[in-house]
Design a protein around this nucleic acid. Structure first.
Lengths: 207, 207
DNA sequence: CCTACCGATCGGTAGG
DNA sequence: CCTACCGATCGGTAGG
């Protein structure tokens, strides 16, 4: 029985842990960190409550683990799209980030997770506060480098400086995702974000 | 004893209920609807748990009441700024909304409340889901009328249509407020939003 | 608007 | 002695 899973006694573990984190995406995405219960997460994953706590010792570890998983998946995709080097190919970076947003529409649970948790995490005492604060800073500096590189090439058409555009782009994506979750019929994530980016980066119009 | 409070047995009630709703702003803003407890809210308001439930029969009523209060305060301000008639004075409407955002910085608790609750409320089963969905629609149609009126006057300088700009403006404000809560030092709400609006509405630059 | 409580459920841990 | 769990239950606290 050769499957694609790793050999040895850890094959099952990786599988179960993955199912647990998928359950976390749903549970935290629906009611947030505070609203979710470890017992409900265990039930969704198809294991007992104590079985859950064998793999992840407490609720907070579930939170940090699921955020780590999402980051790894995002990073893996961006690497494969060669979109992580903003200085070298700023246009690729922008289209790469756009594709991530479009792909995310296929997994609304991920969008809900980020939306609900980032809202909760604005409070300093939230266990994911530092994570989201750092993530926000990282996103803004990423876009700032993209827009700076574009400006140097004369490919930026806006009276606003790169830092302001970075802040605006980050806010726009987050805010639009929230809008989309509230009313998926009348909000088109891809078209709206692309239209905004094209209005300030003419080179994006030919893609 | 003539004070500024209304006569009769209801004077104290209005006062207590106001303190309760202020406590709700803090509690819901810190941990969301799910994370907040009615006992904690009672304590913050300086009354007993059952005393709280005398004024508001359950947790959900506290939520709807506090959202109603915020809406009333916003509407009262916008009326006084003559910013609620987008067709007549589109520039006044934009500067009015900008002032609301700036004023909100003086009460971070209100910004946190909206941020945390709107995140939680993206889930359809949340008691404030319909409220935030309707609010989002209202905001977008308001800005769509503002930008349409500006376009008719030839005062709109953007390749994007009024509906897209409305969606972008709404998303930008919400997203920037979230960014500001995570890092107040490096995000300037007023300057960033004003800069964006000025980049598409030249008439705003002279204000 | 208080003290005194309820049915249930919380996050986490015991022994096996 | 390891892993992957189970049924039962801990001390406290939830909304009402």
């Amino acid at each position: 029985m050769n499957t694609t899973r790793p050999r040895g006694p850890y094959a099952k573990t990786a599988d179960v842990q993955r199912r647990i984190l998928e359950a976390c995406i749903d549970a935290f995405g629906e009611t947030g960190f505070y609203g979710a219960t470890t017992k409900d997460i265990a039930q969704r994953a198809g294991i007992s409550h104590t079985g859950l706590l064998h793999h992840f010792p407490n609720k907070e570890t579930l939170l940090t683990s699921v955020l780590e998983l999402c980051d790894q998946q995002n990073a893996a995709f961006l690497r494969s799209a060669h979109a992580l080097n903003p200085g070298a190919n700023p246009l690729d970076a922008l289209t790469g980030m756009l594709t991530v947003v479009v792909e995310s529409e296929l997994r609304p649970g991920i969008v809900e997770l980020r939306c609900v948790l980032s809202g909760e995490a604005t409070s300093p005492q939230h266990p994911a506060h530092d994570y989201f604060a750092a993530r926000s800073k990282t996103a803004r500096s990423f876009y700032a480098r993209v827009f700076s590189a574009l400006a140097k090439q004369g490919a930026l058409e806006s009276p606003l400086d790169p830092e302001a555009l970075a802040s605006i782009t980050t806010a726009l994506i987050g805010g639009l995702q929230a809008q989309w979750l509230l009313d998926r019929a009348s909000v088109n994530l891809e078209i709206t974000i692309r239209a905004f980016l094209q209005s300030i980066v003419p080179g994006l119009r030919r893609r």
